[in-house]
Design a protein around this nucleic acid. Structure first.
Lengths: 350, 350
DNA sequence: GAAAAAACTTGGATCGATCCAAAAAATGCG
DNA sequence: CGCATTTTTTGGATCGATCCAAGTTTTTTC
């Protein structure tokens, strides 16, 4: 064990083996170009110097490719937060599947409030999981790397994969209407941090009352279906809250006492509503129907299992990965949702 | 929109702004060294050329640091497989938490049968999630990057974080012995792919009958506790199988008909045993007690919930990440397990 | 055995940036 | 204003490898 072998480079090996750098490089990267005995000699010298092959850093500079896809979690989430979020996780799973096919690595990049993760990440492409602020996307554009945005469409020359949330929500409400429901309550999202907020019926719903772009689509979907039965979305009581906010379920049941069905823009809030209903002696689905959004594992395990709209996160991830791995013309994909019927919806009590 | 701005570099900006490369570099990396008006001019020229700041590739070559931790999943698993595995996932969660603290990215590197992922990954350090073959670890050593191995200890100069599986399994069996159990069955792991294999009582258990290094530890733990009551581990019927192998539960119940408690080296097989027992009209824990290993979410949700040994995956991940993020002297950490008492164990039927 | 063809090596340029010592410009001070 | 400081700017060297055209050696062929 020699002590000074700390940093052998191509050059050191070349000198020690008395050949040129190019030859050493060829030994490791294009062995067919080099005579067998030279290969052997160089290899021997290399290993005696503790040199184990080209340093990826130097190689990268020429080759340009990293064989890694960068994923930017939503907003200012850390990596751990993101992994714990089932919606993000499903997308990640889809991305990983495609990366596995081509042997690419997956880099999860926490871009905490413009820490410049996107600017300096060593990846070949980016996938923005849910679109929050333009800054990071702009960084990606400037780096001239292929990128794709999930669940939003920030501009004409940007790849995007979205889910047809509007049609999905339309189908879900149609399902409830067909079961006879006419009185609803909505649990939507908050755009920023904050306590739950109630929107009484009779006032026009503005986009910013709902959350992100995708959540606005959901509201439109609800509205489309309700309109078919002559119900105005503006007359449906609505609570705006974070998915993990425990008070939201209580608030919607308090403020929409006549509702026979609750439309939740998240699966978690759907589950919360079921729980809260139970506490009040309401039996789901006998007394109250509930529909969620996103098919997270918890939705199948709660009691009763939640009817929800599967937003096809895994498929979304797969498509996104394919787009950036084989970049070509700008693509804008739209995925259709599936309504997963479980036991939280039933015919309206007569 | 100019067409030819495809690849502006520092040099192009320098020429266009009529300053030196160094100045441009300083504008972006050490603005305090540059006069305000020059900064402005350079920035203007840069953005007109579509140059958005130093390319990470070039920067990396000098700086050396990538701010990313590389994680190598066990064996030849793909990334998606790994993410779906709860044990791996928990470790990843712990690693991510620590990376979030320091703002590092996480790179999941699929090293499919020596594809050289480790050799060429652009990371500052490696975490080997469970140790399978020496080749990748050797690659990491040769690259002179800090690395840590989970659940194994391949040598004296290697960082490792292990779990005291032996003590954990000892405690689990002790728990069963205290409940009066004396007749056991074991479900262990297969070392390679293959069908389940039954080991009749009365033959010495060899390490390779059990699985990986960590699984051998589990067996020793079982044996330690059993010996305290004068029972030889060699007399306990054992089935070797993959965690997802459905036949293993049937096999152990067939071949250890007198057993009042089943020790499973995985949580999945523990759950399978509960299911299989149910099918045979045995009520767990009244007629049969079952103990698993690893506290995966399914363990809490099955019926009855599985008593199992929590191998502290998240904590393991945290420790591993801290070791490689602040490299110093070689560290060998050992984490103690916790026995999670649920409803799958009870006093032996009298 | 000489010319032609093939096989193997080599040095210089390059990838895109940063570091550093020295030069140039700006500022301070008597 | 002239000299000493301080602040800015600069070019050359460097990080670690790869590419490529040109040079050298070996083998083939007649």
């Amino acid at each position: 064990m020699t002590q000074k072998t700390s940093n052998a480079t191509l050059l050191h090996v070349a000198r020690a083996a008395d050949v040129s750098r190019s030859t050493v490089s060829n030994v490791f990267s294009h062995p067919s170009r080099v005579r067998a005995e030279v290969i052997e000699k160089v290899r021997a010298v290399a290993s005696s110097l503790g040199y184990s092959g080209p340093d990826p850093r130097g190689r990268l500079l020429r080759a340009g490719k990293v064989h890694a896809v960068g994923i930017i979690p939503p907003g200012t989430w850390g990596i751990a937060d993101s992994l714990k979020n089932p919606v993000f996780f499903q997308q990640l799973l889809g991305i990983s599947e495609v990366c596995d096919e081509v042997g690419a690595s997956v880099l999860i990049i926490p871009d905490k409030k413009g820490s410049g993760g996107v600017q300096s990440a060593l990846v070949d492409s980016f996938i923005f999981s849910r679109f929050d602020q333009l800054a990071e996307i702009e960084s990606a554009r400037l780096r001239r790397l292929p990128y794709v945005v999930l669940d939003a469409d920030p501009g004409p020359d940007v790849n995007s994969v979205r889910v047809n949330a509007r049609a999905g929500c339309h189908a879900a409400v149609r399902h409830l209407l067909d079961l006879g429901h006419r009185r609803f309550g909505i649990v939507s999202f908050l755009r920023e941090f904050g306590p739950p907020h109630f929107h009484p019926p009779g006032r026009p719903r503005r986009p910013e009352d709902v959350g992100m772009e995708i959540d606005q689509e959901k509201l439109r979907g609800y509205g489309d279906a309700l309109a078919e039965e002559g119900i105005s979305i503006d007359d449906v009581p609505m609570v705006q809250a974070h998915p993990w906010e425990r008070d939201a379920a209580r608030m919607i049941l308090d403020h929409a006492p006549g509702a026979t069905a609750i439309l939740s823009m998240s699966a978690m809030q759907g589950i919360r509503v079921i729980e809260e209903a139970w506490l009040r002696g309401l039996v789901v689905p006998r007394d109250l129907s509930v529909v969620g959004y996103n098919d997270i594992p918890e939705a199948a395990l709660c009691n009763p299992p939640l009817t929800t709209i599967d937003s096809m996160g895994t498929e979304k991830g797969r498509m996104a990965a394919r787009i950036v791995l084989e970049p070509g013309a700008i693509q804008k994909k739209v995925i259709e949702t599936r309504l997963v019927m479980r036991a939280s919806t039933a015919r309206v009590p007569s």
